[in-house]
Design a protein around this nucleic acid. Sequence first.
DNA 1: AATGAATGAGGCTTCATTCAT
DNA 2: AATGAATGAAGCCTCATTCAT
Lengths: 226, 226, 226, 226
Amino acid sequence: MTHPATVGNVEVIDRSVSRKAADTGTRIRDAAVRLFAARGYAATGIREIADDAGVTTAALYHHMGSKQDLLLTIMRDAMHELIAGARSAVADASGPAEELAGLARAHVTYNGENLIDAYVGDAEIRSLDHSNRARIVKLRDSYEQLWAEVIAQGVVSGDFQIGEQKLFRLAAIQMCNGITYWYTPAGPTSLAAIADELAGFALAMAGCRHGLASPVRAQTGPGEGS
Amino acid sequence: MTHPATVGNVEVIDRSVSRKAADTGTRIRDAAVRLFAARGYAATGIREIADDAGVTTAALYHHMGSKQDLLLTIMRDAMHELIAGARSAVADASGPAEELAGLARAHVTYNGENLIDAYVGDAEIRSLDHSNRARIVKLRDSYEQLWAEVIAQGVVSGDFQIGEQKLFRLAAIQMCNGITYWYTPAGPTSLAAIADELAGFALAMAGCRHGLASPVRAQTGPGEGS
Amino acid sequence: MTHPATVGNVEVIDRSVSRKAADTGTRIRDAAVRLFAARGYAATGIREIADDAGVTTAALYHHMGSKQDLLLTIMRDAMHELIAGARSAVADASGPAEELAGLARAHVTYNGENLIDAYVGDAEIRSLDHSNRARIVKLRDSYEQLWAEVIAQGVVSGDFQIGEQKLFRLAAIQMCNGITYWYTPAGPTSLAAIADELAGFALAMAGCRHGLASPVRAQTGPGEGS
Amino acid sequence: MTHPATVGNVEVIDRSVSRKAADTGTRIRDAAVRLFAARGYAATGIREIADDAGVTTAALYHHMGSKQDLLLTIMRDAMHELIAGARSAVADASGPAEELAGLARAHVTYNGENLIDAYVGDAEIRSLDHSNRARIVKLRDSYEQLWAEVIAQGVVSGDFQIGEQKLFRLAAIQMCNGITYWYTPAGPTSLAAIADELAGFALAMAGCRHGLASPVRAQTGPGEGS
DNA sequence: AATGAATGAGGCTTCATTCAT
DNA sequence: AATGAATGAAGCCTCATTCAT
């Protein structure tokens, strides 16, 4: 109910519109992500969330269920968006190198544009209870599967020089993920530029830095080159 | 899973000795790291730690001070060891490429051999109170400074082809750090092999995969082959 | 398990009719008795009742008033039926022995046929608020008065050999009441047979086991043999 | 820790002594029984118990565990005492009639002397959680088994004229149990006299009112005759 | 006749910590 | 060096009820 079915520019508009009169559920969810990201799930009180959202704790439960429910909702939404972005990136690319670069850029972009959701999604898996964790892990596995397929194809085609594919995959994703821990929109480098840079790193790690005929991405803003 | 001062066979001996009468402080510290890693700082109760260590909560306070003190101790120790390892790796290497590879391997090795300490050190910075966090961040900065210097030298010397040095540093460290989240000693690949692989990735990211005359992992000790 | 105005075969018919479109009030009341009997008044939530009845809590309030109102309704109905049954039993009998046996049988029969209503009526007096409790206690007193009169007459007539009449009354009613705690229609003995047996116990306690010319249970209806 | 190993006059003395400086655990337990009896388990707040016992809720948990633990302790103690009393009553008697009378008197006596414990033990079985309920039901079954054996022997020996033994047992116990609902030490009749009277009822129900050569109990106080 | 939203009060329980012994 | 007792604050959550629609 928070993330729109289609991601893109439209979303941004919708968000800015709905923010003006965000419904209670959304206000609660937003407050929760913010606080979970700032303090951690366990260290965040339900009353803090309620206060932050401007509702009573009882209203919070009326709308969103338990604290655990809130976490599940947040993480599930995040995974769904991440996966959708990755699918779309692969679809838009042709050839293993472009696909890998696309996956890296999509990951970085999603994380950069949804910093706190991504951070929570990354850091709070252990805070999910047994069955909820299973659900999220399943989603995460299906996300990683997208990477695994691209990597395997690149190895088969000879585009990539990779030893252990799993090791490569984990290292590459982890590298892209790192943005969550230090990126800020206020920084000097645009998100798109960072995404390109990290995509370049991923290709280098795969042994095909020069595999892309054209620069990875054309839209890099002025003054953000290396 | 105490982190011994020296790693290797000696460690085992130390362990069997210390097991006979592991002092109370150590038992408490070990229990705390284990639980902080498993559940997170905020979600771990002081009584759980005490129970796990086989002491009363009162004894815990007597020996180790508050829960926050425990966390600080753990994180400070971890940072000190990490820094010591990095310093020693740089000292043993000659030339930017070897140094960078050494840093990567040292990071991976420390994290792999002290999984839970490394994980806590990574995940619980936000659980430190204001002044403690400042202390640890200062240590972390001095650690990153080691990387920064190596990177800068490599760029100056022309060994590395790196755009934004800070971005590279964060991405590389993050990649190495990832091992914390998935490595298990029971896995098929030895820690040394993983360390070499990731060091190779780092060099590739720096644009000098072929910069090392000899194979990256020449220093691998006996009995640790992949 | 609504208590029908008349018990017997007619009841079944009434049920099948009312089932088709049991009115909301009845559905709520039925759900309430069921849950009060199963968990107790205090342990039953108004939302559980509403859910069980298939209505919203708001609708519940609209139809039946508060939780306390529901309890009062249930208990008052139960007392009224119990009293009506006792009156009719006394009217149909002649002589103290028959009357006492009739009271016992009526009590057992009502409780057996309306297990949960009877149980709630018995167990939840303390859950009534001050003024409601007064109302129900008044009804209960008037019910016990019926027993008191029969007992007194039997003592005067010499049919009964009873020491303390109050003690006897309480013991006898309590004994009959016990059925609430263990009777189940699925058991091997018919309710009528149980009622006869307990009526016999009451007479024995009154010192006139042999005071009835004919067997106690002459009135047993067809098809209800033990 | 509340009920003494041996019941009897000594107990009364111990109680009065310990009451002067009752330890915290006992104070809590006593407050709990009192409130559970007065309002019911579900309707009693943990804070009410703590206030009544003069401790904080945290101290209550320190000493007695959860509300459910408190209930289990109370019920288990009550069952143990009841069973001990019944065993001792049977041991002191000779012949089915005396044994049955003894069981009845013991039951009435225990309930009369421990009104609130007995009441709670009777009324709150449904408030026990699954596993605790199983424990108490097991104890209750072993208690009823004592009655069952005496009854069976009396039937075999010809002392008792009883149809369905189980029905008789339930009715008799229920009758004795009733005292819980109306007895008060301030009443005109002594507990011993009531116990004798109810024991006489039980024998009458068993069809052997005159089976005892001597009066059921000699100690009946003056002025308490029928 | 019906309902979704809202709420203040309170439910039970655990928290990290202190202190007298 | 060690501990049992104690506590104020806070933990998450549910309560019965009302009310605008």
